[in-house]
Design a protein around this nucleic acid. Structure first.
Length: 560
RNA sequence: CGGGAUGUAGCUCAGCUUGGUAGAGCGCUGCGUUUGGGACGCAGAAGUCGCAGGUUCGAAUCCUGUCAUCCCGACCA
C-alpha cells in the first residue's frame, strides 16, 4: 500500500513540504498507489455521472463517450458509478460499499505498510466499545488480564507440530536486531498459545494452581495475501483468552461458556445474529481437538466467522510441559483452552447494519449515541445557549453525545455526514423548535421520510426519552438482521437443490452431513462453499452431499 | 503465487497517440452573504507527474527496469 496522508489532517501537506527526506522516502513507495476511496452519497455533476455510467457499460464505451477507455481503471469506475447512481450498494456490490463506508466514515485509513490498518479515532471508539463489553464479561466469568511478548523464538514455536504447520505460511519473522543478525529467528506472534503455554508450564505445579484464567488484549500478525479493512488484515487487534484446567470436563465447560459470551456480545451488543456450532475437522484451529465458532451471515450471502473458542485438549500441555501434581498424587498434563474475538466483529457489524447512506451503528456500540445539530437562523444567541444546555443535560445523563456547532457547514451537510457515520439519534434544534418548546429527534435506523423517522419531543422530556429510543433502535436493528438471517437460512434434503443454493450464495444452507473431510472438499470444488459450523444430532439419516450416514446438522456457505 | 489493470494537487480524474512553461472539478485557506436533508460569490494556497536509468537541445508524454496498489483466481486456525 502506498503512503496516504490523512485527508483533512490540517497542516499535513505543509509538513511534507518542509521535510525533503520524508518526501523522498514517501516518493519511493509511491504516493498514490492505493485503493480509490469512493464517496458515499456525494453526487457529482450530471455530465460526469452520465459519462461514467456510459463508460462502465462495456466495450462500446469508446463510441458512447468518444474517449479512449485505456486510461480508466474499470474498478474505480465501478466504484464511482455505484455511489453516484445510488444503486442499492449492498445488493449491487457489497465489497465496494463496505470499503467506501469504512473510509468515508473515518473509521480507518490505509497505512504505508502492506496489509496494515490505521484505526482512526472514530474506529477506535468502536473498538473501545467492543473491548468494554467483552472485558466486563470476562471479569464476570472470573478472568484476569495479562500481557505476553510479541516475539516468539522459533525453537519454541515449532514444538507443537500441527500448530506450526497450520501457521507456517502466515508467520512474519524478525531476523535482525540492530545491525546484528540473530542466531535464532523470532516469530511475530500469529497467536499466543505458544508463549503463554511456556509460561503456564512455569506457573502451574499443583492442582491447587488451577484453573488459570487469563485474557490478553493484543495485536497479532498473519501475513495475509489479500486484505480488507477489519475482515482480513496483516496486523489485527483482538483478545485471546488462555486457560488451563485440571480436567477435560472443566476445559469443555470453559470453552462453551466463552462461546456463549461471544454470542451474547454479537447479538445483544452488536445486534448481529449468529449461529453457534463446532467447526469441521478441516476448519479446526491448528493444534485443537475441538473448535467452536459463532457465524454471522453477511448481506451478500457469505458467512463471517466472528469468534472462536478452542478445546486444546492436552496437546499444548504435552508440547510445553504444562504438568501438575493431582490430588491423587499423580503427575498430569493440564487441559487448556483458548478463545478469541477480533476487530473482525466490527466488520460484521458494519456490513450487517449499513445502508445506502452509510453506517448504522447499534446504540450499545455507538461511540456517539446522540448528535445535536443546531439550525442557526438570524440571531442565534438563544439557540446557542439552548444547544449548549441540551448538550450538558445529555452528558450529565451519561449519554455519549456530541454537539456539532461547526459554523462552516450547513445543517444539511451535517445531517448527511452523521448519517454516514451511523450515529443512532440526531437532535435538531432550531428557532422553530425553541418557540414550540420541543426538539426534533431523528432516528438513523429509519429511512428518510419513513414513518417515525422524525418526531418532536418536548425539551423537558427529551433527556429521559433518549434511552428508551436508543433501546428501540437497538432492538429494531437486531430484528432486521435476525429476519435476514432467518430468511436466508434454508434447510434442504435434496442434493441438487443444495448445490444450486450454494452456487447462488443463497445463505446458510442447513443440511445433514457425514463429517467426512473428503465430502466437504467435494462440495467446495463444486460450489466454493464449506461447512461453517456443525451441531448434533443430524435431522435425517443420510448426508445430503454424499449419501453416507449423517452425523451432524451442518450450515454450509461461502465464507469471507 | 498466476492472470488483468492503474500510478499526475488532499480526493476523483484530464493531459501522453503527435515530446516544447502543470490542468479541471471537489476539498482546503481568507472575507462576505447563507443555514430545517450535501448553500453561494470573490480571492488564495497546494503537484520535482510512483521511483531509477536511457533516448533527446528539451520527457508527465518515447524506451528499459523497478516499486506499489487495485481487480479476478489460488491460499487463508
Amino acid at each position: 500500500m502506498g503512503f496516504r496522508p490523512a485527508p483533512g489532517a490540517r497542516g499535513r501537506s505543509r509538513e511534507r513540504h518542509a521535510d525533503p527526506a520524508r518526501r523522498r522516502e514517501l516518493g519511493q513507495r509511491g504516493r498514490r498507489g492505493r485503493a480509490a476511496v469512493p464517496r458515499l452519497g456525494r453526487r457529482r455533476p450530471r455530465a460526469v455521472r452520465v459519462r461514467r455510467a456510459a463508460a462502465r457499460r462495456g466495450p462500446s464505451r469508446r463510441h458512447v463517450t468518444g474517449r479512449s477507455p485505456t486510461c480508466a481503471n474499470p474498478g474505480r469506475l465501478a466504484v464511482m458509478e455505484r455511489t453516484l447512481e445510488r444503486i442499492p450498494p449492498k445488493s449491487a456490490d457489497l465489497s465496494e460499499w463496505y470499503q467506501a463506508a469504512c473510509y468515508q466514515a473515518e473509521l480507518v485509513s490505509q497505512a504505508p505498510v502492506r496489509g496494515c490498518l490505521v484505526l482512526r479515532p472514530y474506529g477506535y471508539g468502536l473498538w473501545e466499545r467492543l473491548q468494554a463489553e467483552l472485558d466486563r464479561r470476562f471479569k464476570e466469568t472470573g478472568h484476569e488480564n495479562a500481557y505476553f511478548p510479541l516475539l516468539i523464538p522459533e525453537s519454541l514455536l515449532t514444538r507443537e507440530a500441527e500448530h506450526v504447520e497450520g501457521f507456517a505460511p502466515e508467520v512474519a519473522w524478525v531476523t535482525e536486531g540492530g545491525s546484528e543478525k540473530l542466531t535464532e529467528r523470532l516469530a511475530i506472534r500469529p497467536t499466543s498459545e505458544v508463549i503463554i503455554g511456556v509460561m503456564y508450564a512455569e506457573w502451574i505445579q499443583s492442582y491447587r494452581d488451577l484453573p488459570v484464567l487469563i485474557n490478553q488484549w493484543a495485536n497479532v500478525m498473519r501475513w495475509e495475501k489479500r486484505t480488507r479493512p477489519f475482515l482480513r488484515t496483516a496486523e489485527f487487534l483482538w483478545q485471546e483468552g488462555h486457560t488451563a484446567h485440571a480436567t477435560e470436563q472443566e476445559a469443555a465447560e470453559e470453552v462453551a461458556r466463552m462461546l456463549e459470551v461471544y454470542r451474547e456480545v454479537a447479538e445483544d451488543v452488536c445486534a448481529v445474529p449468529v449461529y453457534k456450532g463446532e467447526k469441521s475437522s478441516s476448519e479446526r484451529f491448528a493444534g485443537a481437538n475441538h473448535t467452536y465458532s459463532i457465524e454471522a451471515l453477511m448481506p451478500d450471502g457469505r458467512a463471517l466467522q466472528s469468534a472462536t473458542s478452542h478445546e486444546l485438549g492436552q496437546n499444548f500441555a504435552r508440547a510445553y510441559d504444562i504438568t501438575f501434581a493431582a490430588e491423587d498424587q499423580t503427575q498430569q498434563h493440564a487441559w487448556t483452552t483458548s478463545w478469541g474475538m477480533s476487530w473482525r466483529m466490527l466488520g460484521a457489524l458494519i456490513m450487517t447494519h449499513g445502508d445506502d447512506r452509510g453506517l448504522r451503528i447499534p446504540p450499545r456500540m455507538a461511540p456517539v449515541e446522540v448528535v445535536i445539530v443546531p439550525i442557526p437562523r438570524g440571531d442565534t444567541t438563544a439557540l446557542d445557549a439552548a444547544a449548549k444546555s441540551l448538550h450538558e443535560q445529555c452528558k450529565a445523563a451519561g449519554l455519549r453525545v456530541r454537539l456539532d456547532d461547526r459554523p462552516g457547514q450547513s445543517p444539511g451537510y451535517k445531517f448527511n455526514e452523521w448519517d454516514m457515520r451511523g450515529v443512532p439519534i440526531r437532535l435538531e434544534l432550531g428557532n422553530r423548535d425553541l418557540e414550540a418548546g420541543v426538539v426534533t429527534l431523528v432516528r438513523r435506523d429509519k429511512a428518510v421520510k419513513e414513518d417515525g423517522q422524525k418526531q418532536q419531543v418536548p425539551l423537558n422530556e427529551i433527556v429521559a426519552f433518549i434511552p428508551t429510543m436508543l433501546e428501540q433502535i437497538q432492538h429494531n436493528l437486531f430484528a432486521q438482521a435476525k429476519t435476514f438471517l432467518q430468511d436466508h437460512t434454508i434447510a434442504t434434503l435434496d442434493r441438487d437443490e443444495f448445490i444450486r443454493l450454494l452456487k447462488e450464495r443463497a445463505g446458510m444452507i442447513d443440511v445433514p452431513w457425514c463429517g467426512d473431510p473428503a465430502c466437504e472438499v467435494a462440495v467446495k470444488d463444486a460450489t466454493g462453499a464449506t461447512t461453517r459450523n456443525l451441531r448434533q444430532p443430524a435431522r435425517a439419516e443420510r448426508c445430503v452431499p454424499c449419501g453416507e450416514p449423517a452425523r451432524y446438522q451442518a450450515y454450509f456457505a461461502q465464507s469471507y
